[in-house]
């Protein structure tokens, strides 16, 4: 049975004086893909960063698996199993693919790379290549592959398909489904058709607030999402 794995309650966040997030409540269950949609500047990235501990919330709580995350250091949050994958697709350019994966293993003590190769077979062929020489799609694969080491509880992925070729997006779509069987996903995404195809729940974010929650498969549609943007 699916149970709640990540829960955000009354989260407020600010950059200095400027308040960005207002009383965010949200939850992610095991096996779920949850999407956040909203215009640029709505506060989606800030939301993910606050959950991952890169930004200290001014108030409110983030709990994962009955453990309070707010107040933890970002690397402890990641170690605990809530990992943030930023939008910039910045793998470590100067390191090889193998070394990038080694770092993922070093942090989590999980050296089972077969699971990564199972999702992204292509990475096997690229092992000795410098990550700086990968294509955008390959970088995204490496970023996600590196993050699923250690079987995280939740992956927070910021704009995973931005700037990628349609073929790769389709591939990622099926991979996300597979990953979600073991690791819940919280995705910030602009690509509404993709969101509607994979998401079990959608939160619409506007001006730092959650303005709508589409909680079941039937109610999620591009038109429904667009209404709140």
């Amino acid at each position: 049975m699916s149970r709640e794995i990540l829960s955000v309650k009354g989260l407020n966040a600010a950059y200095g004086e400027a308040k960005v997030l207002f009383d965010i409540d949200m939850s992610v269950n095991t096996g779920q893909i949850v999407a956040c949609v909203g215009r640029n500047g709505a506060g989606k990235t800030t939301l993910l960063k606050s959950i991952a501990g890169f930004l200290k919330p001014t108030s409110g709580s983030v709990t994962a698996d009955n453990t309070l995350l707010s107040g933890m250091k970002s690397y402890d949050v990641a170690k605990f199993g809530v990992k943030y994958i930023p939008q910039d697709k910045k793998v470590f350019f100067d390191l090889t693919v193998r070394e990038n994966l080694e770092l993922g293993s070093y942090a989590t003590k999980d050296y089972n790379w077969d699971q990564v190769i199972a999702y992204f077979p292509k990475l096997r062929l690229l092992m000795e290549r410098k990550a700086g020489h990968l294509s955008g799609g390959e970088r995204q694969m490496l970023m996600i592959g590196r993050a699923i080491l250690g079987r995280p509880k939740v992956l927070l992925i910021d704009e995973p398909t931005e700037g990628l070729a349609p073929g790769i997006v389709a591939q990622l779509k099926s991979t996300f489904r597979e990953i979600s069987l073991k690791t819940s996903l919280l995705i910030v995404e602009q690509n509404l058709p993709l969101v509607c195809a994979i998401a079990d729940k959608v939160y619409a974010v506007k001006d730092g607030r959650i303005v709508a929650e589409l909680g079941d498969k039937e109610s999620i549609s591009v038109a429904a999402c667009e209404r709140y943007l």
């Binding site: 890169f54 970002s74 690397y75 990992k83 993922g104 942090a107 993050a147």
Partner: peptide
Amino acid sequence: RAAIEDVEHVEGLGIN
């Protein structure tokens, strides 16, 4: 070496 490139990403992996 990774942190010389980007500190935040290394933290994001769970490394202190």
